[in-house]
């Protein structure tokens, strides 16, 4: 097993050199207002628990003007196609109990604020839950309907709808109390190198944000904009789907979407963005 190790080192050096050699390009100075009315904080002072970062930036600030502008108007944002479909699903009665989301929650606007505090400790479940888990909990236990695939289209669209009504509110996930141990597990994962490339989340998104990784402008890996419509696959992408892609790119076996590890990582990464506005559904490359 000697050869792969040498290869890995060589690659790590190459990655480092490429990053160092390319022109440093910090986040741009653009500001984001959606539909001319929703002010989005794309920059904020780092939350107290972050030691190595002073300022946090939304991924929006690292994208080209063209990609940025697609998010500035809901009509130009292709993610809204999916949000509109979810708005119909919201009032769709499904399952054995004859209920829709709207039966209990009435108008989806009542969900304003929800996205901002998830993942969140659930007293009844005795664990930290993501918004996806909560949606499936409602479907199974309130509606008597089938659960949705964690990273499936229906789920991403519903998370997008619920996020959309919280846009502009600051992300504010709780990291203390009963959530603390999960948060610490997430932090551990964030700083653990994985895969043949031996890269941790922090190597790219804390140490190297603003640099180019090949032709890509590295962001801080904030998740305040999720779910996100990506130009590369023209669909809504979930947080755990994105985590999976990132971890896979370190050439590691990934955790599963919905797994304990990814829940913990989501809580931790969300907490790194405490203070940025909820922005989802966003548009990224």
């Amino acid at each position: 097993m000697k050869r792969p190790q040498i290869l890995t080192r060589a690659m790590a050096v190459t990655v480092a050199t490429l990053c160092a050699a390319s022109a440093s390009a910090d986040p741009d100075e653009d500001s984001l207002t959606i539909n001319g009315e929703i002010e989005i904080m794309t920059e904020a002072a780092a939350p107290a628990h972050l030691d190595d970062v002073d300022t946090i930036y939304s991924g929006w600030r690292f994208r080209s003007d063209e990609t940025q502008s697609m998010q500035m108007d809901d009509f130009d944002n292709p993610a809204m196609i999916f949000v509109e479909a979810a708005a119909e699903a919201w009032d769709q009665v499904e399952g054995t109990e004859g209920k829709s989301c709207g039966t209990c929650h009435d108008d989806v606007d009542n969900m304003r604020g929800v996205r901002a505090v998830y993942p969140k400790w659930s007293e009844t479940a005795g664990e930290v839950r993501t918004l996806e888990h909560q949606i499936n909990d409602c479907r199974e236990n309130q509606m008597g309907a089938d659960s949705w695939n964690y990273t499936g289209g229906d789920m991403a669209a519903m998370v997008g709808l619920i996020s959309s009504v919280s846009r502009g509110l600051p992300v504010n996930v709780a990291i203390d109390g009963p959530a603390q141990s999960t948060w610490e597990m997430g932090k551990e994962l964030y700083y653990t190198r994985t895969g043949q490339l031996e890269l941790s989340c922090a190597n790219c998104h804390e140490d190297s944000y603003g640099l180019m990784i090949r032709a890509d402008h590295l962001s801080q890996g904030q998740i305040n904009g999720f779910p996100t419509y990506r130009l590369k696959n023209t669909k809504l992408n979930s947080v755990h789907g994105r985590f999976k892609g990132c971890v896979r790119d370190t050439r590691a076996e990934t955790y599963k979407p919905g797994s304990t590890e990814f829940i913990a990582l989501e809580l931790y990464v969300a907490s790194r963005g405490n203070g940025l506005s909820v922005e989802g559904p966003s548009v990224r490359n």
Binding site: R214, D216, L218, R242, C246, D249
Partner: peptide
């Protein structure tokens, strides 16, 4: 047309 650094 740039190619992303991360396929992720």
């Amino acid at each position: 047309v740039t190619i992303g650094g991360c396929g992720g």
